[in-house]
Design a protein around this nucleic acid. Sequence first.
DNA 1: ACAAGAAATGAATAATGATTCACTACTTAC
DNA 2: GTAAGTAGTGAATCATTATTCATTTCTTGT
Lengths: 209, 209
Amino acid sequence: MAYRETEKMRQRKAQARQRIIDCTYECVANGGFRSARITRIAGLAGVATGTIYRHFESREDLFAEIFRTATQREVDKVAEALDTDGNAAVRLEAALRQFAERALRGPMMAWALIAEPVDPKLEEERLVYRRAYAQLFEKAIRDGIDEGCIPDQDARQSSTCLVGAIAESLVGPLSPTLAGQITIADIDKNKLVDSIIGFCMQGLTGTRR
Amino acid sequence: MAYRETEKMRQRKAQARQRIIDCTYECVANGGFRSARITRIAGLAGVATGTIYRHFESREDLFAEIFRTATQREVDKVAEALDTDGNAAVRLEAALRQFAERALRGPMMAWALIAEPVDPKLEEERLVYRRAYAQLFEKAIRDGIDEGCIPDQDARQSSTCLVGAIAESLVGPLSPTLAGQITIADIDKNKLVDSIIGFCMQGLTGTRR
DNA sequence: ACAAGAAATGAATAATGATTCACTACTTAC
DNA sequence: GTAAGTAGTGAATCATTATTCATTTCTTGT
């Protein structure tokens, strides 16, 4: 016998894999999934196109992993914002703000995750993550109902509406056609976020603050 | 001289064009834009593929026309619902209901118009029509504010949230992966529509009814 | 240094459908 | 009936990229 996979090799491979992931991420954050070509990713990562396929089944698979990682990061941030002190309404407001503000800070990636037309497999992932957000919100709404700071309602339905309202409000500002040309001032961003949240909180609680 | 385009010919051409449109519509209503192949459309319409291109610049163009027509029909229905008697809140509620109920009645087409991943050109059309809905709602909200039945708020922002909340609430039920298998009972539909509207109206007015 | 294997390479291939265009079949005016 | 011009045809072409795989390069244990 001769060659045996060694720790050093395992690490080197893991490194290459990570570099591919990072470069894909960069490509997507730069122009969305559609414009992220395998050849370009390989070029950036400093490997041959064939090498990509030693690390990932297919382009779809690679993208799915990027999508999951990127979205999970966002979901976690929202979960974090929900897991602080204060009553449920306050915490929900913080979470909604977190969601919107982060999206506006990385608009192209946010657009890719929320609104870019993608292949069916990614679209499926997207539905999963929209549900994940909705479930976080749903839980908080239930808490709020128990606490008495949110009136009784169909928590599941309301959570879906929250996700939709935020996503829709962001799609316009995030769309690359617009976003490429227009730069959104910080003041506008704050105003945007405030008014989205105003609507959402009133939808939940019946009052704006 | 010899051949001159005559009325009869003009009509025949218009007929063929219409047949192509109808068949495309049928294809889309059946499986969305992605699965609507030119060859299939041509087959259904009883013409050669080349003939399609004597009537439309490109597949994209044909689809854009279908998209516009189909969406305009929906927008008109919503406008109609908004143009009845009653105060603005009541009319808005009727309009939201119209939107949601019609979508649930033709789920595949609604999905294609609202949520199917489509090419950039169609995606642009979609943004235009989402704005069209939002503008209708926005106008009604302003009316409501003037009338005093809706509290003062950022009408534009609220209208966007309405569109998003409804669209998001429908995406799940409309998604072909699910919708193909599960059939939504009328009772469920009614409950769904009621709870969407409950959230939306509270978002607008601060009360559920 | 060498043999046995694994990883990397990237030019060639494959797959998918939209689109073209040289040709045929019609229509019209005379 | 015929010439002039238009509409219709559909097999062949084209364009685009992801994916493959025969070959080369690198690693390892002896």
